[in-house]
Amino acid sequence: MIMFEKKMETEKVETIIGSGVKLEGTFVASGNVIVRGEVQGSLETKGDLRVEQGALVVAEVKAGNAYIAGVVKGNISVNEKLSLDKQAKIEGDIRCKSLLVEEGAEINGRCTMSDSKKEEVFEEEEGEEEE
């Protein structure tokens, strides 16, 4: 059996919020996160986020990269790439650098695709003009 073989290749362990649990509160992780169950509150990771089919996230979401195939009710902010599966359903605003949407995905909210730093500068300039 493979179980008893030595020198097995091991992968980096990631946080998994399974379909058998419900998480409430502010969840902050530094590595990758997989969501298969229910999350309420806010969800933040510097790594990749994967919301699988059947998952329900009622939270503010922040991630490095994200793949969504479940339901997200809340704003999503992704530093790099956001991929939406055909099963994905988003009810909230999206902010990302790069967006990939499969046919069938549902988005109900605003979508912003700009560099956040540039936008901050722009907002500051606007403020100065007003003065």
Partner: peptide
């Protein structure tokens, strides 16, 4: 329960 989040096992 941690300081920031709670986990409720539903079907474990």
């Amino acid at each position: 329960k941690t300081e920031n989040w709670k986990v409720f096992p539903v079907k474990c």
